[in-house]
Design a protein around this nucleic acid. Structure first.
Lengths: 246, 246
DNA sequence: CGGCAAATTGAGGGAAATCAATCCAGGTGG
DNA sequence: CCACCTGGATTGATTTCCCTCAATTTGCCG
């Protein structure tokens, strides 16, 4: 069920104002965006966009988590992106959607009809430049993930995913680093498997193994505590103090 | 050995004029680019950029082939991109290089010093828009490759790589489709393995298997004939007549 | 002809997939 | 309140595909 809500929230109060595609906008540019934007809510599990569908809007994730997936005819599925708050959805200058976009939690999107957005983008370089910047970041993330998919073991893959989620979560809640990191997995075991190019059984086994070895603690199936992020990053095969800040 | 050559070739005669980052430029914009560009030649096997190095230039591949690779401390390497004529190298707005760039054939690049290029980009929206377009295409390619790495079998991986090279080669030489496709592999077996997340032995075995099954013909180690591209794409697990034009 | 790097082919082992049987938490209804 | 159901998750047994180690083979250049 798609709901239209929060019809007239101001951009100024927006939680993703400084990270989304509108981050670089001047006040008057923001007013323009404000005029053409609308909010849509999706429930957990709901498909936002079907691959191949006509795309008549683009937008930003305001809250919640969504996944980008590709599927072969025989059903094999690969997740190709994880969309978190402030991430951009849709591709200006292209008609059809290339991937399925599915909400994995309840989710709110800030949408723009594609045509007006493209026209606005042609007039306001701040949006195009910001979008280029975000696209380059996504490209880096995709390439990082190619290394994970192509060359890492199952255990390293799980550790890589956990460390990415842990660090991204920390950058949102911005708690002081050093102490244990605590977060909830936004994905089922099956979704994790689709992200990592594994089966859900292997995901489950490696989660249990990391737990047994004290690399992580689990409460229930989703609640994760990482006592030592450096240890987790070693397990991921990353240089633990390879200090480039994302 | 780095050679500076072709010092004053005109952009108007450039073989990649209509496909590279300058594709959208007006004549006067092109004049500006013409003023700050210079050519560099590299020999097969030569490293163009080391990961982590300071990048003081960006540019386009004019002729030849280069690879983008990522390496783990223990030596495992994953190719994350294949650079063909007209592809862009470097990331505006970032200091250090994220990947190794290696010429796999003799190669010529059209370079711009980074600072002047960035300034020019800020002034001329045609360059920024074109670069966004190219980056989005690369992102699509990277995500397509994630499916290959995460979910395809060794045989499907090889078939996928061959079909991509075959089609891209055909789009350059633009011969009529339907007949057999003939091309030279620009990669060693080891480079293919690094691209596909396999070992070079597995690459060799699967090449032999595809040859035995008549999907491809081989003359020497590099010269490939594809009698039926549809058959090859079936082997790749792609919808053989899934007709979206690249 | 010998020397060398790239490639092929073979034998054996191992990591992850597959097939299958529980387990568990949460929700429903008797 | 407890039995029952359901979907996600865990654990176990077996298989398979690909990796590893190792021996040739091929093509090329001096």
């Amino acid at each position: 069920m798609t709901l239209v809500s929060q019809a007239s929230e101001s951009c100024a109060d927006c939680p993703i104002r400084h990270r989304a595609v509108c981050a670089r906008c001047e006040p008057e540019e923001l007013d323009e965006l404000d005029g053409i934007k609308y909010y849509r809510s999706f429930e957990a599990g709901q498909t936002i966009i079907w691959s191949g569908d006509m795309m008549n809007f683009v937008g930003s994730v305001v809250s919640g988590v969504a996944t980008l997936t590709q599927t072969m005819e025989d059903g094999r599925t690969q997740m190709v992106g994880l969309l978190l708050p402030s991430d951009f959805v849709g591709r200006p200058g292209r008609e059809g959607a290339a991937y399925n976009v599915v909400a994995t939690t309840d989710l709110v999107m800030c949408c723009f009809r594609k045509k007006p957005f493209e026209e606005l983008m042609a007039r306001t370089p701040h949006i195009a430049v910001r979008l280029l910047e975000m696209t380059l970041d996504e490209l880096d993330a995709a390439r990082e993930w190619m290394l994970v998919l192509g060359r890492k073991t199952a255990r390293e893959k799980i550790a890589s995913l956990l460390s990415i989620i842990a660090r991204r979560d920390a950058s949102l809640t911005s708690r002081g680093q050093g102490g244990p990191m605590v977060f909830d997995l936004p994905l089922t075991r099956e979704a994790m498997a689709d992200y990592l190019g594994l089966t859900l059984e292997t995901v489950s086994r490696q989660m249990s193994a990391l737990k047994k070895d004290g690399v992580i603690h689990l409460e229930g199936k989703r609640h994760v505590t990482v006592p030592d992020i450096g240890r987790l990053m070693e397990e991921a095969g990353d240089d633990s103090d390879g200090g480039f800040l994302v």
